[in-house]
């Protein structure tokens, strides 16, 4: 499903990624851990072509992402849902509109959009708050809206970059449980970059650790350390 082959990324003289090769199968749940500046976000960005590696290749669904033409990037991104630490919600749109936005820009049928939005809001437990603006929601709820938006197009891959970075431990645990549920129920491949030791240790998933842009370890049922 996802494969990186000897990926390097340099910004001037700074080496961000060095010889990163990993393979993630369909329906896997993988934690990407490491200190700030370890290269986690850059690696995730390389998967949805927000960053182009300096050297090496990235494959998503057998498509060489590094060789994609600019006009084909949107097609790649339609198969990947992305969740961020700062939610990236549009404050002037309601919860339902924020989620629907992801399908509107893909020019989907309004009836289909409505059905999908309600379904995915039900999945994240925010159906009752569909008409609220993001400012009326807690941090955890806002992150769930962002997860709903990432999921509404039924992507095969869900990438979450520090999704619990701004949340308290209880809410973080709730959000991680939700990601786990999505992985279990929908068989979506989930890749989460995190600093949350407690969560990584208790969920016992595959853990890939990056340090100084290199893969330090790759463990099935690993812990944070």
């Amino acid at each position: 499903m996802i494969r990186t082959d000897k990926v390097f990324k340099l910004y001037g003289d700074n080496v961000i990624l060095q010889n990163v090769s990993i393979q993630i199968e369909k329906s896997e749940f993988v934690f990407l851990v490491g200190q700030n500046g370890a290269g986690k976000s850059t690696l995730l960005k390389a998967l949805y072509r927000d960053v182009l590696p300096t050297k090496g290749e990235v494959f998503v669904n057998n498509v060489n992402v590094t060789r994609l033409k600019r006009r084909s990037i949107p097609l790649l991104r339609r198969s990947i849902g992305v969740v961020f630490q700062d939610y990236k919600l549009l404050k002037y749109k309601t919860v339902a509109e924020n989620v629907a936005f992801a399908l509107e820009v893909l020019e989907k049928d309004p009836k289909f959009i409505r059905r999908q939005v309600l379904q995915v809001l039900d999945l994240v437990g925010l159906l009752k708050k569909k008409d609220e603006k993001p400012s009326a929601l807690s941090g955890g709820e806002q992150q769930k809206v962002s997860i709903a938006r990432a999921l509404v197009n039924n992507p095969q891959i869900l990438i979450a970059d520090e999704p619990t970075g701004n949340l308290d431990p209880d809410t973080s645990w709730e959000v991680m449980q939700l990601l786990d549920k999505i992985n279990e129920q929908r068989k979506t491949t989930v890749l989460v970059a995190t600093h949350d030791k407690a969560i990584v240790d208790s969920m016992r998933k595959r853990v890939v650790e990056l340090s100084g842009g290199k893969i330090l370890r790759d463990e099935i049922l690993g812990g944070y350390r």
Partner: peptide, 17 residues
């Protein structure tokens, strides 16, 4: 810009943006 980023991330075509 935030809106444009989100549009680009969810796979909106450049012309649509």
């Amino acid at each position: 810009e935030n809106e444009i980023n989100i549009m680009a991330l969810v796979g909106a075509s450049r012309s649509f943006i």
